[in-house]
Design a protein around this nucleic acid. Structure first.
Lengths: 350, 350
DNA sequence: ATGAAAGCGCTAACAG
DNA sequence: CTGTTAGCGCTTTCAT
């Protein structure tokens, strides 16, 4: 069942069918009605492959993420899809799973399917790979910082705003020993967060000397808390470079029978959906995944709809902000002496 | 840059280029080498739209889920994508977000993009919608139960196995007051789980009288626990129809200062990634999302690679199994008198 | 083993 | 306003 079949049955030419389907205003309403009638009767759906082939636009946007199982991404993917549906786009989702081969195949898949634009929401991607996309003039959107070139859209994150709020929130609760568990030191976004922490502490005259490098995973948070507690004067509050790290801290605290927020305050970063469901609910710096997805999608759409290619790279800013839940509280009294802490909890069943 | 450009530069016909690229064995190795050289030099990538148009196969599998933000799905999507990459397929991911309009658009999108098969991992989809797919002879895979028709693959879940293990685990820990929080009663999968619970209880001579209907969300679990605690003889263990419900129970227990597992044992269902990260880590019935994705993908691939259309619907079974973590323990002593429970925890800061 | 050419389903000139 | 027709980039007979 193709456009000719429709044309035959509606007794018009294929061109008219095409025009009717695409709502070209010049077509006679009578004919249009006839065409639509047949279309509906036969359950005809245009073949997008053929459309793409002739029009040169696939109406597909690529979306490259690190891994979908990373709780940071589902919300983004969902928002991106919602916008795609609204705008008659499809989304080609690929994940790099931190594997160079998969990064390569992601780019290859984007090119093979002739996507109209790509949002790259993964951190750390070879520049040479991106050149393939750039070479083909595929509109690109980056987070944090991408190559400095025309037609490339950049979403800059204001990490400082939220992290400053977090630090000041803790200070207001009379914490002075505030620690930071960073992300991997080869991640731009992690570096920026740590820098924002240092700045925020310095601003209010507190030393930013309690910093341990984590890995943005739960076990990194667990290990870091263990280390902090080995100190003669452990922190009373811990700010984490992402939520998974904070969850690790809370888990380790649970195992050690350290009460949150009474004995220890914890703040995360990202505000993944899960943060609402932890025990206690996690106070965290929100980097709105919905906002991020919206900005990225809209930027792509602008780029595609623009007649003349944009000559300058554009910038967008996404700010971060603290959301209070229940993992932070007043600094424990007598905080300058290490509180005696129990060992691991007793044996469990089974 | 197209196949003709390659042909010109390699001084062969487009047919030969096509054959070389597709590794047709009859092509002269010399020529093939020449073709590949040019392909690599120019960074040529075949246009999949054109390929699909002429071959009639898009090499795209559709994947319909309820919502990507439901923690049950990311693992499935990731596994599905990994398999797709291995097999040179692309995946068209759509979510219904429980909206009839979106269900319709999901089906429409699948048809427009001419997918080679669809895995429907969402519960509750109009049969009339599916008819559009069936009509076009698109291979379909369902979970639980789909329409009984040729060429439709069915993945049947053995709910009983895991739920029986859960019930018996609790019984072994001397629980006799075991409650169940079900899912929405219009969901086939939820009904099946509740039935499995009843069967399992009856088998060992325990009454299955403590059942409250939840909603597969956190708040449903919270409310249910509240209700149970209003009883003169509240349960000492709660089995939940899914993990989010269990997380709600644990959250409410935390608010009520009920200790898990000391005062109350909790078991979930699904074993979403998050279950490992709760406090305490959640004992739950695992329904392997990886397995499910693998079965679904493989079934689709089989269907596509088969020469003659299969005449009978095929069945696959996925079993469930209990995974022990730390949310279950011995029934509290003197369980037949309601343990006095404190009210909500004191005021919190901020 | 290779090439010429038809055609997949659609859109967009161009003609009328 | 409508129809005719030339391709979009590729695969695949059918000849050679």
């Amino acid at each position: 069942m193709d456009i000719r079949e429709i044309a035959r049955r509606a007794k018009v030419s294929t061109a008219t069918v095409s025009r009717a389907i695409n709502h070209v205003p010049t077509v006679d309403p009578q004919l249009a009605k006839r065409v639509w009638k047949v279309v509906d009767e036969l359950g005809y759906y245009p073949n997008t492959q053929a459309r793409a082939l002739v029009s040169g636009r696939s109406r597909i946007f690529g979306l490259i993420v690190s891994e979908i199982t990373n709780p940071f991404f589902p919300e983004i993917v969902q928002t991106f899809e919602n916008l795609a549906v609204e705008n008659n786009y499809e989304i080609l989702l690929t994940s790099t799973v931190h594997d160079p081969k998969r990064m390569e195949s992601s780019v290859r898949r984007m090119i093979e399917r002739r996507v109209d634009g790509v949002a790259i929401l993964t951190f750390g991607m070879e520049d040479t790979l991106l050149d393939h996309l750039r070479f083909r003039k595929v509109p690109l959107v980056f987070v944090d910082v991408g190559p400095n070139a025309p037609g490339i859209v950049n979403i800059r994150i204001n990490y400082l705003n939220g992290i400053r709020q977090a630090v000041q929130h803790l200070a207001a609760l009379r914490h002075t020993r505030i620690a930071f568990i960073s992300g991997p030191s080869n991640l731009k976004s992690a570096i920026a967060r740590r820098a924002a922490f240092k700045t925020s502490m310095t601003e209010i005259g507190l030393p930013a000397d309690l910093i341990i490098e984590g890995n943005h995973q739960m076990d990194g948070g667990m290990k870091a808390l263990l280390e902090f507690n080995g100190l003669s004067n452990p922190p009373t509050a811990v700010l984490c470079s992402n939520d998974m790290t904070a969850i690790g801290v809370m888990r380790e605290a649970y195992d050690q029978d350290i009460k949150i927020p009474n004995d220890l305050s914890v703040i995360g970063f990202d505000d993944i959906r899960l943060a609402e469901f932890t025990i206690p609910p996690l106070t965290t710096v929100q980097m709105s995944q919905m906002e991020l997805a919206k900005i990225a999608f809209q930027a792509l759409l602008n780029e595609v709809q623009r007649e003349s290619p944009s000559l300058e790279r554009s910038e967008h800013e996404l700010t971060t902000t603290l959301v209070l839940r229940r993992s932070t509280g007043l600094a424990p009294p007598g905080r300058h002496t290490a509180k005696p802490r129990k060992g691991t909890a007793g044996s469990r069943i089974p």
